[in-house]
Simulated assay, not measured.
Amino acid sequence: MSHILVVDDEPALLRALQISLKARHYSVLTANTGQEALDSAGRTPPEAVVLDLGLPDFDGVDVIRGVRSTLDVPIIVLSGRAETEEKIRALDAGADDYVTKPFVMDELFARLRAVLRRPVTTVPGPPPRIGAYEIDLAATTVTGPEGAVRLTPTEWKILALLMANPGRLVPGRQILAEVWGPEAENNGNYLRVYLATMRRKLETDPARPRHLITEPGIGYRYQP
C-alpha cells in the first residue's frame, strides 16, 4: 500500500481525492496549507505527493522545493494554473508531472501509477536523536553529552520499533507481540516498566517526556 500526501485548499476536492485514493487501496494523508504539507512530509515521508500550487500560505513551488530538500519522492502538481510559464516553474523546481484542473480522475491515477513505478531514493538525513542523545540503530549505540548510554537488548527492540514509526502511534499490543511474542499481548505492565527506565536514560525530564510518549490505554509514540 503506497502512502500518498495530498495537498489542496479546496475541502471538497481534498475529500474527493482522499476517498478515491482509499478506494484504490492507497494510504492517504491530507494537508490544506503548505506548512501542514511540509510538517506532514517531515513526520511521515510519503511515497508520492499530489500538490496544488494555489495554497493560502505558501506558493506551491516553495513546497516543492521544501519537499525536494529532504526527499526524492514523485510530486504531481494538480493546479488550475494552465499557463506554460507556471508549468515550467513547477517542473524546474522538482515536480515530476503537472495536471491541470479540471481533470479526469482516471488520468490522474494513471499518472500516479506511472511515477510510483520509478525508483525512489531518500536523501540521507542526520542521525535520529532523542533530545541530546544521538541514536545509531544499526550499531545499537546511544551517545549523549556525557558519552555512551547503555540500553538492554529488550530496550533496543522497543526503541527500534518506535523509531521506525516516527510520529505514529504504535499500539501497545503490537509492541508486546513483536518484542515478547503473541502470548504477551495482555502484559501491558512490561511496557510501562521498560518505558519508564528508557525515559530515565534518554529524556531530559522523565516525568514530562517529549520524545517517548505514552498514549494511555492505547500505545506509545516516538516524537522526533
Rank of each mutant, 00 (worst) to 15 (best):
W156P: 03
T30C: 12
A114Y: 01
F103L: 08
T154S: 12
L161F: 08
T30P: 05
L169H: 12
R150W: 09
T140N: 13
R173H: 14
V61Y: 00
E36H: 11
E83L: 04
A164C: 08
K87E: 04
A148Y: 07
T152P: 00
V99E: 03
Y133H: 14
I64T: 10
L169M: 13
R168T: 13
Y133P: 09
R199L: 06
K101S: 00
P126M: 10
H211K: 05
P224T: 06
L21K: 04
G147Y: 13
A132S: 15
T121I: 15
L112D: 01
R210T: 12
R192N: 06
V63N: 01
R168I: 00
W156V: 05
L137Q: 10
R199F: 05
I135P: 06
I175L: 15
Y194P: 02
Y98F: 14
N165L: 09
S2H: 14
Y26A: 02
I135S: 09
G34V: 00
F109L: 15
A16G: 13
F103Q: 13
L195E: 01
P128Q: 11
V7T: 07
L176S: 10
L51V: 14
A148P: 08
P182W: 10
T140R: 15
I75Q: 00
E146M: 00
H25S: 12
V28G: 00
A31R: 02
L108I: 05
L17D: 01
A114V: 05
P182E: 14
E185T: 15
V28T: 03
P166S: 01
L169D: 11
A110K: 11
A41C: 11
I76F: 03
V7H: 03
T44W: 04
R65C: 08
L17V: 02
D92S: 15
A95R: 02
G94Q: 05
G144K: 10
V104C: 11
L55G: 03
F109M: 13
A48G: 10
T122I: 13
R113T: 10
Y194G: 07
I175H: 02
Y26M: 05
P74L: 04
V115K: 10
L116G: 10
T152K: 06
P171S: 09
E134V: 11
E47R: 11
V28D: 07
R15F: 14
L78G: 02
S20E: 14
K157S: 14
R199E: 09
L21V: 01
R199T: 06
G94C: 08
L112A: 03
E86F: 07
M163Y: 05
A114G: 04
S27I: 12
V142C: 11
L21I: 06
H25T: 12
F103C: 04
N189P: 06
